[in-house]
Design a protein around this nucleic acid. Structure first.
Length: 272
DNA sequence: ACGAGGTCCTGCGAGC
DNA sequence: TGCTCGCAGGACCTCG
């Protein structure tokens, strides 16, 4: 499930293969990954355009095109982005972009929870403005984190995962960061002690950086841009460890769906 | 304004 | 063996 580290990994790996390339052909096979654009408009907006940049924003890959537009891929749960040889078959292919060097940029998505967007400059500004700050921005501080989340009465875990408040953190890394910071996931964000934000910010940034170094976490479907599995799932301390002993104190880890209907795993002794 | 819960979609594993 | 069912959850939506 691509969160920030997974999308960052993909973007870094495929950037050199796509930036500078011209898209010669665009063909969309499933239209249910579109929201604000028709399939024909997407294909026409991509075919003939040159890719001038590729970045990550939150959990999304953003292709800058020479027409002043941006092509955004939200991989959702099972989306993957790969540069493959011509003619390579893939039963989960959603979009193929034929590049001018003969290779193909492939968006595949098993469950098609992902979304494709084509945004002009104004739409991109609105899109970008609706997302919270990037936790890995070089100067992102505990104060910034407190400012982003500290007014929310929501459980801190839900606030961490709210893309409007903070960009890029999903269920896996929210669980891991809260364990590392020793914070009860159900605690309202606004109730965190002022001193707690420093530890949480360090934990979030550390976990995300470590996951990027491991090329992300492969649970089921995620593959890097070059088709490999990530490695961070081997270092989970709570996620997928419900019922197993806490690595700090040995207490049996608790699993619950009480927060946002997502699996939350935590140590009720270490996380207060 | 906020929280709760539903929806999309398919593969996988458990249970019968 | 083959079926049904529940679960995984990012982003978005509606309802109260």
């Amino acid at each position: 499930m691509p969160e920030l580290p997974e999308v960052e990994t993909i973007v870094r790996q495929i950037r050199s293969a796509v930036v500078g390339r011209r898209i010669e052909r665009a063909s969309l096979r499933h239209h249910d990954v579109l929201r604000e654009v028709t399939g024909r408009a997407l294909e026409r907006g991509l075919a003939g355009a040159r890719v001038t940049g590729l970045e990550r924003r939150a959990k999304h890959a953003v292709f800058r095109l020479d027409r002043g537009t941006r092509f955004v891929i939200q991989p959702g749960m099972t989306g993957g982005i790969h540069v493959v040889g011509t003619g390579e078959r893939d039963r989960y292919a959603v979009l193929r972009l034929g590049l001018d060097d003969g290779r193909t940029l492939l968006y595949r998505d098993i469950r098609r929870f992902g979304t494709l967007l084509l945004l002009d400059a104004g739409a991109w500004r609105r899109y970008d403005a609706a997302l919270g700050p990037e936790p890995l921005a070089p100067d992102f501080s505990a104060r910034d984190l407190a400012r982003a989340l500290g007014r929310s009465r929501q459980a801190i875990k839900k606030a961490l995962m709210d893309q409007k408040l903070l960009a890029g953190v999903g269920n896996i890394y929210a669980n891991e960061a809260l364990f590392e910071a020793g914070i009860d996931p159900s605690k309202p964000a606004a109730d965190l002690a002022p001193a707690a934000w420093g530890g949480l910010n360090r934990a979030v940034r550390r976990i995300l950086r470590a996951a990027i170094r491991s090329q992300g976490s492969t649970i089921r479907d995620y593959r890097t841009g070059t088709g490999e599995s990530g490695g961070f799932q081997l270092r989970f301390k709570v996620y997928e460890r419900e019922g197993e002993p806490c690595l700090h104190c040995g207490t049996t880890l608790t699993g619950t769906h009480a927060i946002d209907a997502r699996i939350t795993v935590f140590c009720h002794r270490c996380q207060r």
